[in-house]
């Protein structure tokens, strides 16, 4: 799940309330290239609350494509994680500025000084935030149009975090690196069969330990395919809703884990690894 710290709409405290209401017993906040939401929740967590797992999601890229790599249960004071968050943030800000420049130069879309400042002050701003502003200013009829017809056209040649660096930093911070929504690549691709196989082999070589086989918008076929790779390579299995508050229509806690006939071995081992029983 994501909070307002990245591209969600719930504040960390609202999120905690929703998690409590949903009856969830173990959860992780995985804001993009950010870790401070977890610290904020941990401060207000009381004894009978659900267990929180430190989480984050790094956007990565190399010659072969784009990846979202989740880091779970890392040591929040680890320098390697902090450095990686900082690098991710730096690259992200550069991309946001490129996009803002692009829509200004290309279409003449400008925002007030205050709105621009607010946007740049966010810890993890991205396309959805710019799109929201565009809709508010009447530059685009919907968020989808704003992203597809305008923002995605911006030539973004910025630097990226490489997957091996993200994985190594998570491992160095005693965390567990997990590939998010493997069949969707970085979100809206479709990667299956030998392509997924090759991706996983590369990432496993870098130290990847798990795959998010249970994902809110995986149809059964993609879930099964991801699970079979988890079994083939003996990987941890995790479940994620990718809840973004009002920014995506996904109910909190919807991971389709309830559709599994039994909890896969890879998930049992993951739960043991994070001391959850």
């Amino acid at each position: 799940m994501h909070s307002i710290v990245s591209d969600g709409t719930d504040t960390p405290s609202e999120l905690l309330k929703h998690v409590r209401d949903a009856g969830i017993t173990l959860f992780s906040l995985t804001d993009h290239d950010a870790v401070n939401g977890c610290a904020m929740i941990r401060e207000i967590l009381s004894e009978n609350d659900p267990k929180l797992l430190n989480g984050t999601e790094f956007s990565c890229r190399d010659e072969h494509g784009k990846y979202h790599i989740l880091g779970y249960n890392y040591d929040p004071d680890s320098k390697s994680i902090k450095d990686m968050v900082e690098a991710g943030h730096r690259y992200r800000m550069k991309k946001v500025r490129t996009r803002l420049d692009y829509i200004r130069d290309e279409y003449g879309f400008t925002f007030s000084e205050q709105d621009t400042q607010d946007l740049l002050a966010m810890s993890s701003p991205g396309k959805p935030h710019i799109a929201n502003l565009m809709v508010r200013y009447g530059y685009a009829p919907s968020k989808e149009t704003a992203i597809c017809d305008y923002l995605n056209k911006a030539p973004v040649h910025s630097e990226y975090v490489r997957p091996e660096d993200a994985i190594q930093s998570i491992l160095a911070g005693n965390g567990i690196p997990v590939l998010a929504h493997p069949a969707y690549g970085s979100g809206d691709e479709l990667i299956v069969g030998s392509e997924m196989d090759q991706r996983l082999r590369r990432l496993i070589e870098y130290g990847l330990q798990g795959v998010e086989a249970f994902y809110s918008t995986f149809p059964p076929k993609l879930r099964k395919e991801t699970l079979s790779f988890a079994e083939k390579y003996d990987l941890y299995v995790t479940a994620g809703s990718d809840y973004h508050g009002k920014n995506k229509f996904i109910p909190l806690g919807k991971t389709n884990l309830d559709k599994a006939a039994e909890i896969p071995g890879g998930m049992k081992r993951f739960l043991e690894a994070v001391d959850y029983s």
Binding site: L190, V192, P219, P220, K221, L222
Partner: peptide, 8 residues
């Protein structure tokens, strides 16, 4: 378009 990969 990949639909056949996603579902039956």
């Amino acid at each position: 378009t990949g639909f056949t990969e996603m579902t039956e």
